[in-house]
Write a protein that binds this DNA or RNA. Structure first.
Lengths: 166, 166
DNA sequence: ACAACCAGTTGCAGATTGAAATCAGTTTGG
DNA sequence: CCAAACTGATTTCAATCTGCAACTGGTTGT
């Protein structure tokens, strides 16, 4: 999937880097699901990515500077994948994608509650989330607000509500 | 490229509809370049889309409700493609894509000036642009402000500046 | 020792992509 | 009226990409 540069248009260049069916899914899982290992990304994926595709995307995203990989001290084969500053700055883009998808596609309630919160929260919430991701992935100081916890709590609340026998 | 729905996640569903290398390029050209016919999209494309791919994407985008097609009264074979409300609502997404690409890829000055303006203009400018697109593509009343003209003027100014002999 | 786990790799069939050529109907210029 | 150019595609074909399943070589826990 190496590409000769087609044009210097920012939208085109973004598509050349991220315009396929899996790259943003992988980033989404790292970002919102906090999956950091190959196996977590492989088996806990809603969409069921194949292992060769996952390996390929992790390699390409790392080459392009959107992810970084370091060894896991607890296991010689494990690697820990982290977001980088460029991929953390995809938060507003993913928030807009979630907002659009929520309006114009047939989403499930459980999986779209986070998108709803993120849309309602607006740029302030996105910035807070990015600060939190910098702490989780880049070792920056941990901010007070945990958007991650807010999103997770809302998600679990919806799951619990829908599991209610009635 | 028909897809069995992989999951109800809004980001995934948006990717299933738009996550390929050409769909958003076509929408970009309709939106920012005001290309309305097959030939205009084919030959004035910066990236050089192939005609079979263009035909396929126009068909798929129309099937998915992101474009509409009507006959051109001036030519029995010509069709006029228009954006629809769902694709007009992609403006904030494309603005974010442009903003990200401008920061993290090697864009050309000429092709990124519009992204810069759109980023600086923020949600107010996006809303004005969407109103203008509703006038151009859906027959809504023409708004006072023409973001399209602002973008075009800025683009032409950069082209002129860079063409200056010095 | 041994089973489970780990991060991938390999092989393969089928689908998708993209370049180039081609197509048939429509309009235009002379 | 007729030829050339234009229209929105379609066809052909090689190359690439996708996804599934099996497999590899190594690590870890018991």
């Amino acid at each position: 999937m190496d590409i000769v540069q087609r044009s210097g248009c920012p939208i085109n260049l973004t598509l050349e880097m991220l315009g396929d069916r899996w790259s943003l899914i992988v980033i989404r899982d790292l970002m919102f699901g906090n999956r950091r290992h190959f196996r977590e990304l492989l088996s806990q994926s809603e969409e069921g990515i194949a292992s060769n595709i996952l390996a390929d995307r992790l390699r390409r995203l790392t080459e392009n500077g959107l992810l970084s990989r370091r060894d896991d001290p607890s296991h010689k084969q494990k690697g820990i994948y982290s977001l980088t500053e460029p991929s953390i700055q995809l938060v507003p883009l993913l928030a807009q994608m979630g907002a659009w998808g929520r309006r114009h596609t047939r989403v499930s309630e459980e999986l779209s509650i986070r998108a709803e919160l993120l849309e309602d929260g607006g740029p302030d919430m996105w910035a807070a989330f990015m600060d939190e991701l910098r702490a989780l992935h880049l070792g920056a100081p941990v901010p007070e607000r945990s958007v991650f916890a807010e999103l997770q709590a809302a998600y679990l609340a919806v799951v619990a509500k829908n599991a209610e026998p009635r």
